[in-house]
Write a protein that binds this DNA or RNA. Structure first.
Length: 817
RNA sequence: GGGACGGUGGCGGAAUUGGUAGACGCGCUGGAUUUAGGAUCCAGUACCUAUGCGUGUGCGGGUUCGAGUCCCGCCCGUCCCACCA
């Protein structure tokens, strides 16, 4: 082999051989265990950034490792190709989103190949391809039929900058998740997917996702926000309409002293028509800030409405307020206010001088409304609550719920924070929603035979969708009555495409169905890798669509991703890399300087995958130095001749080295296999290399055999991380076949055995000496030897020894005090 | 306000089940080699009032023969959610 490590030439050659052999193409082999390793596919924004490189390096290491363990490994790659940045770029450059996207895909694909990722490119897909989104349109038609997709006029989050609607999940702190523009509320006809139908399953199954980070499960649980309570209907004096509220605390019902509705609530709106003060309040509240922090700081504010509600049990007349702290979007948009037991109600009551009536008190205690400074929100025991007095909160919950039901004034109900998923986007660069609007027949599904509804390729001049000005696209005839009709010009939210791509990779060329029987072999994904920023968007939608596909009979698995690894951010100079901060490190520049292996190795070594990674120019140098050293060492070793076989007996020095090497192999394997702690696995390979380096010049046959064996192990341990270098060194060491087909190294149990071990000896918990004892020495012998140690006798002195603790293989603690 | 995760040398980080704190790397110091620089190699590198029964994992307590790790009470940081009834 060559004496000098020349990464660029080497990497090019190895990549060419992979390409020539189609080395990462896989098919279904029913007699082999499969492993499906998937990294979140990129949006083709132009060039790879360091976050991509980290994501895909982690995924590639896992895929290559599993392959060495003998699994039939699928690792595909594709493009999340629809989306707004393409439109913005197209407007700026006077081109079409399609052309811009295709150019970016070509560029980024070259970069991915340059990094040496082992993808099965035969399965590549782009979501903007009609062969892909055809099936999304198809499944949408199925959902329409089942009532799981529906259209309704709804108040929506509207981003004035992007000129489109946003799903709830896409509003961050009251602003657009993409461009940070504050969102406005609008009433628009929208298509929805009934994700709330699956809320319980999505929530309950989080408990089974043992391979997911707790963090992500907690976020999804939080987002779905299930709460059990009672819907209570209050009669309104002199009106037929009832006032419906949702409460999780029916036990506090007898403490209700007023009701409050959202400013957008019909009752408030109706009142505004006849009362100028209410109208002014409602108007002012419609512009209220929705950003976080402001909301918290916002003082409780309200206005009394003319209506009076009637307490369902006591018959008492209760004032009704429109109040800023009540949200129209949650529950019924109205609350029963119990100032004694809810902090918001308490603050409002204090401000407007409304009565505070404690009905749930601490066991054995009491509450004085006159001196309360905050609400008592704990469960307790009921008082002043007619027949319910004396019950516990839990008991009263049931008793009062039963009573309300008997009176026809309420039912138990489960409420969710999760809302149905609005998927209509008023933009061009997306998959057309396959619906035709007919004046006579209404919204009519496009017949299956007419799919796909192809998005025409167009140039863009302004933010508005050109589809709406394109009669060639929207003019059509009604599939039902044959009359003139218009196509839906809205497109799907791009999160729809990314909700099922993992399944399409299994059957990328299927033109008869969304997926075929091959999905049964590969799904679910065994390991998914991506950024934590998708914890509630993509990962929740994908779980939902997976269940839709299951219930359509397309796939069998309940969940799409068995294990999930969320990698940390890449920082530079202590901050997240971003163009605005000017602290971006371009991966391409790093590859050009050091080669792909060095970049991959540094990323893996600098931090465990789920933690933030601080980019360090010196650290990259260090990684490069290590690869250089390993290369030279292997070249020196190989130059001296072939590797001799291990003799039956090794001299002590060689045996010690072999022991050390095998112990490190064991550690590195455990780090990769069980813990995905690639940073410590790399550290172990460095330790092995350092140890071998001292003996590389030895001409002792036994020592040479140990060094040769050790180098072969290091090369295989490193091969998922630095595959090009490993490929060359493997050949340099004289192995036949490529390292990609080699087996993962296993420690030799006989090498791990020792005749004697060194134990630390402590006196009163402080290290005082070290003794060497036979590995099979019993406790009494170890104890004896420790007590006769001179250092121990010195520290113990005349103090009687109270106890001797022996931890086999580790230490002895002599307790004398 | 609720939740999750974290706080260890000059820096990134290691310590997996309560058992030698600081692996590995960076940086730094000294030396070798070199015309020089760089590269490479060797040695050292937690701290200190250092001839030590010394101190040390954010702070204060506790359990234990033994605590970075477990328990109680605080402080600080990052992320997520948030007038959710």
């Amino acid at each position: 082999m060559e004496r000098d490590y020349n990464p660029h030439e080497l990497e090019r050659a190895v990549q060419q051989s992979w390409e020539a052999e189609d080395a990462f193409a896989v098919g279904e082999e029913l007699d082999r265990q499969k492993f499906y390793c998937l990294s979140m596919f990129p949006y083709p924004s132009g060039r790879l950034h360091m976050g991509h490189v980290r994501n895909y390096t982690i995924g590639d290491v896992i895929a290559r490792y599993q392959r060495m363990e003998g699994y039939n490994v699928l690792q595909p790659m594709g493009w999340d190709a629809f989306g707004l940045p393409a439109e913005n770029a197209a407007i700026e450059r006077g081109t079409s989103p399609a052309a811009w996207t295709r150019a970016n895909i070509a560029e980024m694909k070259t970069q991915l190949k340059r990094l040496g990722f082992g993808y099965d490119w035969n399965r590549e897909l782009a979501t903007c391809d009609p062969d892909y989104y055809k099936w999304e349109q198809w499944v949408f038609l199925r959902l329409l039929k089942e009532g799981l997709a529906y259209r309704k006029k709804a108040p929506v989050n509207w981003c004035p900058n992007d000129q489109t609607v946003l799903a709830n999940e896409q509003v961050v702190d009251g602003a657009c998740w993409r461009c940070d523009t504050p969102v406005e509320r609008r009433e628009i006809d929208q298509w929805f997917l009934a994700i709330t139908e699956y809320a319980d399953e999505l929530l309950d199954e989080l408990g089974n996702l043992a391979g997911w980070p707790d963090e992500v499960r907690a976020m999804q649980r939080n987002w779905i926000g299930r709460s059990r309570g009672v819907q209570v209907r209050f009669a309104v004096a002199g009106a037929e309409q009832e006032l419906s509220v949702f409460t999780t605390r029916p036990d506090t019902l007898m403490g209700v002293t007023y009701l409050a509705v959202a400013p957008e609530h019909p009752l408030a709106q109706a009142s505004a028509e006849s009362n100028a003060d209410v109208a002014a309040f409602v108007e002012r509240m419609s512009n209220r800030a929705t950003a976080e922090g402001e909301l918290e700081a916002q003082e409780k504010e309200g206005i009394r409405l003319a209506a009076e509600a009637i307490h369902p049990l006591s018959g008492e007349r209760l004032p009704v307020y429109a109040a800023n702290f009540v949200l129209m979007a949650y529950g019924e948009g109205a609350v029963m206010a119990v100032p004694a037991h809810d902090q918001r109600d308490f603050e409002f009551a204090t401000k407007y001088d409304l009565p505070i009536r404690p009905v749930v008190v601490p066991e054995g205690g009491d509450l004085d409304p006159g001196s309360m400074t905050e609400a008592f929100t704990e469960p307790g025991v009921l008082k002043d609550s007619e027949a319910f007095s004396g019950l516990t909160s839990a008991g009263a919950f049931e008793a009062i719920a039963d009573k309300l039901k008997a009176l026809g004034r309420g039912e138990r109900r489960t409420n969710y924070r999760l809302r149905d998923w609005g998927v209509s986007r008023q933009r061009y660069w997306g998959a057309p929603i396959p619906v035709i609007h007919c004046d006579a027949c209404g919204a009519v599904p496009v017949p299956e035979a007419d799919l796909p509804v192809v998005l025409p390729e167009m140039e863009l001049r302004e933010a508005a969708s050109p589809l709406k000005q394109s009669p060639e696209f929207y003019r059509t005839t009604c599939p039902e009555c044959g009359g003139a009709a218009e196509r839906e010009t809205d497109t799907f939210d791009t999160f729809v495409e990314s909700s099922w791509y993992f399944a399409r990779y299994t059957s990328p060329d299927s033109d008869a169905a969304m997926v075929d029987e091959r999905a049964g072999y590969w799904l679910p994904v065994d390991q998914y890798v991506g950024g934590v920023e998708h914890a509630v968007l993509h990962l929740l939608y994908a779980r939902f669509v997976n269940k839709l596909m299951r219930d359509t009979g397309l796939i069998a698995s309940d969940e799409p991703f068995t294990r999930l690894l969320t990698q940390g951010m890449v920082l530079y100079g202590g901050a997240k890399m971003s163009k605005s901060k000017g602290n971006v490190v371009d991966p391409q520049e790093m590859i050009d300087r050091f080669g792909a292996d060095t970049v991959r190795l540094f990323i893996l070594f600098a931090a465990p995958p789920e933690q933030a990674l601080e980019w360090s120019d010196e650290g990259v140098q260090g990684a490069h130095r290590f690869l250089n050293r390993l290369w030279r060492l292997t070249a020196d070793f190989a130059e001296a001749g072939p590797v001799p076989a291990l003799p039956a007996e090794l001299a002590e020095e060689a045996a010690d080295l072999r022991h050390q090497v095998h112990a490190l192999i064991q550690r590195a394997s455990d780090d990769v296999r069980r813990r995905y702690h690639f940073n410590t696995a790399v550290a172990a390979t460095m330790e092995i290399t350092n140890a071998l380096g001292k003996q590389v010049g030895s001409d002792d046959r036994g020592m040479r055999a140990v060094v040769g064996e050790g180098l072969s192990a290091v090369v295989r341990l490193l091969s998922p991380m630095t595959p090009h270098l490993a490929n060359a060194l493997w050949q340099g060491l004289g192995h036949t076949g490529t390292v990609e087909h080699a087996a993962w190294p296993e420690p030799d149990p006989t090498a791990l055995q020792r005749e004697s071990v060194d134990l630390v000896v402590q006196v009163n918990g402080k290290n005082r000496d070290e003794i060497r004892v036979p590995a099979d020495a019993d406790e009494a012998a170890v104890r004896e030897q420790a007590l006769t140690s001179e250092r121990v006798r010195e520290f113990v002195g005349d103090t009687p020894v109270r106890k001797v603790v022996v931890v086999p293989g580790k230490l002895v603690n002599v307790v004398a005090k």
